[in-house]
Nucleic acid binder design. Structure first.
Length: 385
DNA sequence: TCTGGGGTCCTAGGACCC
DNA sequence: TCTGGGGTCCTAGGACCC
């Protein structure tokens, strides 16, 4: 049976959500002027998290440095992100979408897919989608785009057409007309590097890509990716709308320093901090981890990363930190200034039957107590993104 | 102008086993 | 003494997403 999939995407999500709050407080609507959401604007390393449509028209892009954006628009209004607010707005948005179909996949904080095959027909789809977007706007105060397609890929591509507050279709048979003329970079999964490779080969549009032979494509991007790109460029995607949110496979935290650091004492303090955050997060989700990895990023953005296995899964900060310190010796020469340090854990399990070794380090009980106190102190604080 | 933070998946090469 | 081929696991690095 042909499927009908909707992709719902909040327009400039963080900016819209902050705008709604400001409007409710009787302040001007920042969606109507050049404005952005970012981290601390006084921190030279802050980047733009979201930009209003007027800001985008001035060439301001998500993920560019705040300092650069301010140069493009000296009067730019900058608001700080508010995670608690964004979580609430996201829940309200997902809730309304869910009332249209039980088959919903949350794709990120501000995007979801719903399978509408049983809820509407091709003829009624645009009307239903319009009702959905209008309901979100009137009840929650912000706009969304709804993309309608024969599968998830096409629905997502469609929601990216003209914004804001729009409904677009991209049915399979509309692919040559609506999708093939687009630049290859517009296709999902084609990032900067892949675009460069394709353009160097004379592949400029999604249509060019769709017609490219698999042999050539495989040489350019590898077998698996080639198969996916070829399917997607032709509008094919049979992935289901997955209602179950899979468990996390890794947990990590990283910190970028205001200035690059090379003093081992500073580096170790940062490593300690990220270890506390990561271990706290896995304890909150009752995970234990068997693999620890540490990475450092230098001023040229090159990364050095090392990983190691623990004897058994753990959620104890001190054990993770200890492994991370050993790994850091290999990852970093101890002298080169570091821009960013990160710590991740993976191979997560919910193993609870701790194998208590007869000779277990007597310090372990002390470490656990330390973690309990840490968790208590941080329990009421919101978690970062 | 000078680039955050948190994830996922893929690949290539090496180790090790049969 | 020199040799194969397959399978699996691990690691480092790279690319992509929001």
């Amino acid at each position: 049976m042909p499927r009908i999939i909707f992709h719902i995407d909040v327009n400039s999500a963080f900016l819209s959500w902050s705008a709604v709050k400001l409007v409710r407080e009787g302040k001007p609507d920042i969606r109507l002027v050049p404005s952005v959401v970012s981290g601390d604007p006084n921190d030279r390393r802050s980047i733009i998290t979201a930009a209003s449509i007027p800001a985008k028209k001035l060439g301001i892009k998500t993920a560019e440095p705040v300092s650069m954006a301010m140069r493009k628009c000296p009067g730019l209004i900058i608001v700080r992100g508010d995670w608690e607010l964004y979580k609430q707005c996201s829940e309200g948005f997902i809730g309304i979408c869910h009332s249209y179909s039980p088959i919903l996949q949350q794709f990120s904080i501000d995007e979801c897919f719903i399978d509408m095959t049983l809820q509407c027909t091709r003829e009624s789809a645009v009307g239903v989608a319009t009702r959905l977007k209008d309901e979100i706007r009137s009840r929650l105060g912000f706009t969304v785009n709804v993309g309608i397609g024969s599968n998830k890929l096409l629905a997502k591509m469609a929601s990216d057409f003209e914004k804001p507050d729009k409904v677009h279709t991209l049915w399979s048979e509309e692919v040559p007309e609506k999708m093939w003329p687009l630049g290859v970079r517009e296709l999902l999964w084609v990032g900067k590097k892949t675009e460069e490779r394709l353009i160097a080969y004379g592949i400029h549009t999604i249509g060019d890509l769709a017609k490219l032979g698999m042999g050539t494509l495989t040489q350019l991007v590898g077998q698996k990716f080639a198969a996916q790109l070829h399917d997607n460029a032709n509008g094919r995607d049979d992935s289901p709308v997955e209602t179950e949110r899979g468990e996390a496979k890794s947990v990590s935290a990283e910190r970028t320093f205001p200035q690059d650091l090379s003093d081992p004492k500073d580096i170790d303090r940062a490593l300690f901090n990220v270890a506390c955050i990561v271990a706290h997060r896995i304890r909150r989700h009752s995970f234990r981890a068997s693999t620890v990895s540490v990475f450092v990023k230098y001023k040229d953005f090159s990364v050095s990363q090392k990983q190691g296995q623990l004897d058994r899964p753990t959620d104890i900060t001190a054990v993770i930190l200890n492994e991370a310190r050993h790994l850091l010796v290999d990852a970093w020469d101890g002298k080169t200034p570091i821009r960013q340090i990160g710590l991740g854990v993976s191979k997560l399990t919910h193993e609870t039957a701790e194998q208590m070794s007869l000779f277990e380090d007597p310090k372990m009980e002390y470490y656990r107590q330390w973690d309990r106190e840490y968790d208590e102190q941080t329990a009421d604080k919101p978690e970062g993104k």
